[in-house]
Design a protein around this nucleic acid. Sequence first.
DNA 1: AATTTAGCTTTCAAATTGCAAGTAAAAACA
DNA 2: TGTTTTTACTTGCAATTTGAAAGCTAAATT
Lengths: 145, 145
Amino acid sequence: MPQDFRCDCPFTSALDILGDKWMLVIVKQMLVEGKETFKDFTESDEAIATNILSTKLKLLEEVGIIIKTKRPGNKKTNLYLLTDMGLALTPILVELATWSDSHLRGLNPSIVEGEAMESMRRDKAAFASALEQNYRAKLASMVYE
Amino acid sequence: MPQDFRCDCPFTSALDILGDKWMLVIVKQMLVEGKETFKDFTESDEAIATNILSTKLKLLEEVGIIIKTKRPGNKKTNLYLLTDMGLALTPILVELATWSDSHLRGLNPSIVEGEAMESMRRDKAAFASALEQNYRAKLASMVYE
DNA sequence: AATTTAGCTTTCAAATTGCAAGTAAAAACA
DNA sequence: TGTTTTTACTTGCAATTTGAAAGCTAAATT
């Protein structure tokens, strides 16, 4: 079941894949919070139900945003990792967070503040790039362990 | 009914508002396609149902992304216009389209190609800025007519 | 005055989301 | 080596959301 697209619009087509409450949240958890396993995701602040998690992980894999793998020697724990296609979502996530930072604090006063937010405000592109490089470094280190 | 937020994460909070198939599509139609009236939206490529459109327009207004108004002298046709908060979504839309352009053509080969896409690729920030300025110019011209 | 248009609302069916419980296999423990 | 725990799910079912189609009201046009 690949996916259905509403039309030929590039904006809309992205939302045909990413436009729901969970797809980008899962990507964020991987990129920003370092979550890798099914268990990791179930323990998140956002409290995703396991059946939804299962469905969304399958969809993310089908589309090519993540890959499912295992650590050598471990036959039980699945690892979900971002592909290049998935890492390319970083700028979208950073723009979403930036918009929240400047326009959503009135509606959700609990939105976090701190050094990371300040760093993001100071230089969005550098912040996005750092997130991505950090994740790539982790991927590289996994291969040789 | 303002809105419920899942947690204090700025990424997730943006998706609590924008994370569905329609909210950002409606904003795109206003920003990129110049749609303003209920009728305009119903005639879009994406073919939104009128009940959903009605619900989403109300939500967009409640959140503060759009305002509902009328042209002076016309008591029938409602105009929906982007606020500053709504216009601030432009970079998110441009990042979504950019991602589609580089990663979704395999899954949706019908995604449009053309001068606008090339211009977006050439300079994303300038493209976003042009979209926003273009919309602001339209807003300014409406006031004096 | 009659018709058309714009902007919805209502009804109901279908799809999606989500809670809670259950299962199977691997791994850790005694 | 047998028992318990952990991980990664699936299943059943209720609740919510989405969507197609029809209907309705008031303004504008003919």
